[in-house]
Nucleic acid binder design. Sequence first.
DNA 1: AGGATTTGACCGTC
DNA 2: GACGGTCAAATCCT
Length: 297
Amino acid sequence: MDNPGSSRKKIFEELLRGHDCAKKLRSVINESCEDGTATPFAEQLVKEVLMSFTNSLLFLNNSTSESHDVSNVLQVWDSPKSEDSQESNCKSITVKERRGCYKRRRNEQTREKESEAPIEDGHQWRKYGQKEILHAKYPRNYYRCTHKFDQGCQATKQVQRVQEDPILFKTTYYGLHTCKNLVNPEIILDPMSPCASSKFLSFDNSFPTPSNQDCPFFSSSFPSSVKRECKDEVPPSTSSNDYLISSDLTFDSSPRHVTTLSSTLDSEYKSLDISDVLYDPAPLDDIFEIESFLKFR
DNA sequence: AGGATTTGACCGTC
DNA sequence: GACGGTCAAATCCT
C-alpha cells in the first residue's frame, strides 16, 4: 500500500494534469472563435472546471500535514510542530496534567492587520484569554477558533489596540483554519479593490460591516457598556471553505458582486500563499501560477 | 441549560 | 524571575 505522502503526490499530479488540460481547452475554445474570445457559456464552463481543480488542490493543501506538502514549498502556514515535537509528552496525559504545557510562540508564521474596528475575517472566534502586556497601554486579547475542539482547528489570533493610535486594532493571526463549515460561503473576489494584490475574499450579501458597537472585543480596557465580543464576528458559514472559489462568482469582474466587505476583509489573507494565487483577482491566467508552485515539489 | 466571556493561575521560554 | 500564552473554574448572557 502506498504511503500517504505518495498517494497525495499522485493526487496532486492528477489534479494538476486536469488543471493543465482545462487550460489547454480554454485556449482551444478561444482560438476557435474569430475574435479570440469564447462564448460566455463556454468560458463559464471552463471557469467552473478550473475552479473545481483549483478547489481540489486547495483542499488537498489545506488538509495535509506539513510533511510532504506543498505547504513547505509554499511556506504555507504551518504549525510549529517541529519545534513542539516534545509536545507529544503532553498528549497522553490528562487535561488537568496538561495544564501549563504551553509553548511560547516563536518563529511561527503570522499575518497582521490593523484596522479601525475588529475585523470580520470570516471565521468564528472564541476569546480564551486577556493579558496585560508589559509597556503596553492596552491589554492583548486572545482568541481561538470556535472549532478548535470539534474540528481541531488550530487557528488563533491576538487582538490589541494600537498604543500610538487607539483607534486602530492590531490583529495577529496564527495558524491556518482547518475547520470546515460546509455552508456555502459564496465567496467572491473584489476586482475593484484598490489593493488588487490583496487576495481577499468576500462573502456575498449580508454580513454586517463590523463596528465598535457590534464588535466590542475589548473588554476590560473598555469599561462597562461593552462586555462581550461581537456575538459572531462572522456568519457561521465559513472556514477553510472560505478559501474555496465559487464558480458562480469568482473572477466575475462585474461590480454588482462587489460587496462592502472588501474593506473589512481586504488584505486579511494577503499572506495566504497558495490561496493568494488562487484568489488573485488578476486575469484568469494567473491562476495557473499555482502550477509553478506545485511543481516545485 | 448551554454557550461565551472573564480572570486568576499555571507553566514554558527568555 | 519576568513575561507571555493558555487553561479552566466562575460567571454572565440568551
